[in-house]
Computed example of a mutant assay.
Amino acid sequence: MTSSLVALPLAAAFVTLALASAWAVGLAARLAARWLSPGLRSPSTALRAAVVFAPAVLGALGCAALALPSPFVGCHCAEHGLHHPHLCAFHPAFALPLVTPSAYVLGAWLALTAPFVLRLFRDAIASARWTRAARRLPAVALDSVVVRLADCGAPGAFTIGALSPIVVIDRVLWRSLSDEQRRAVVHHERAHVERRDGLTLLALRLCVALFPSSAGQRLIDAWRAAAEQSCDRYAAGKLGDPAAVAAALIAVEKVRAQDPRGAALPAHAMGALAGGDLSRRVLALLDADPPLQGAEPLLANDVLATAIVAVGALLLTFVWPGDGFHHAIETLIGHLIH
């Protein structure tokens, strides 16, 4: 019981900091979309993912500083006095005034996020079932990449699966492409597999569900667009010809435009269709600076990249600013509840 007197306020502090950060990130995203020139170089996929993860990371860093002022300092309650509540593992009873407000904060947060989390859960289950079914489909191998051919209801090529992704291509689309176009599409999808983009997409959607923001879906769409561009560059490096990848994108879009089917693809699929993003992706391939001439970009998972930076920041938070930041947050909490 005594441990919950500290754990509950810490959880509420994490939620409050993360929601405030999500609002700030959403506002910054709207301002950036309005004022930044569209001709500027697109940020990396890892940076775009980090923006979506920022609320959770900032909330965790704030809570870490609040829970542990310094690894070399134990109880500091006597130094700071009792003019505000204390979140101290040695004196959990000092956090008692925060328990009721924290319960209200957490209850409101659960009510706010429950519909988003349930929708994500349903999408994840549907995608998992779709993936299991796709594994039983006939497969072909091209350039050592295993491809499942399916009747998708729409002419698309995509990667699905968070932990064990597979490449799926619609039968109609596969028959409509030339050998070189097939290689371009297959290597594009292989890049999604290597980057584990399905896992990243699931983590991004979970972050937005837990900490809703007006710009949350827009930020995820921006990450997806950057990921598609990164996979285009990878395919261009494999083929040694950016123009061949650009031609494959155009060919896929032509098949899509002529196909009467319009079934929706799984929610967690990556690399489905070029769609309205076609012009930008083709220009990015043909006008790359420096030109793409067979150099394959390094592929890395964006969740892992963000986690490494977050862990480094967390270790720094334990040491600095330490007790000063801890005391400032406790003082602010004291003013808010009195």
Rank of each mutant, 00 (worst) to 15 (best):
R196I: 02
F53D: 00
R136N: 10
A95D: 04
Y234C: 03
A28E: 08
M1T: 11
A33Y: 09
T159L: 00
A244R: 06
S127C: 15
I308W: 12
A108D: 08
T113E: 06
G161R: 01
Q293H: 12
R175F: 09
V282K: 00
W35M: 08
L149F: 06
P43Y: 07
A284S: 15
H335N: 11
P97C: 12
D302T: 13
E79N: 10
A310W: 03
W23N: 05
G322R: 08
G62D: 05
R224W: 01
L149S: 05
W130K: 07
A227W: 02
A32D: 15
L118W: 13
A257Y: 02
L137D: 03
H326Y: 09
T317C: 08
I329Q: 13
H192R: 03
A244I: 06
W23I: 07
A295S: 13
S279H: 14
L87K: 04
A13T: 10
V309P: 00
R190Q: 12
L142E: 04
A236E: 00
T331W: 09
L8S: 03
E79C: 06
E253Q: 15
V172H: 10
G26P: 03
R129Q: 14
P43K: 05
T100I: 15
L332F: 12
D259N: 10
A114Q: 12
A20C: 11
R119A: 11
T2D: 12
A203N: 04
F318P: 03
S70T: 05
S214F: 12
V117N: 00
L27F: 10
P55D: 02
G59N: 02
P266H: 06
T2N: 15
D323K: 13
W223V: 00
V117D: 04
V208Y: 02
A126E: 11
T113K: 03
P92I: 10
R171T: 14
A141V: 14
S176I: 02
V172Q: 09
L110V: 14
A95I: 10
C207K: 01
V140G: 06
A274R: 05
R195N: 09
D179E: 12
A295I: 09
A269P: 00
R205D: 06
A251Q: 02
A111V: 11
V245N: 04
D123S: 15
A133C: 08
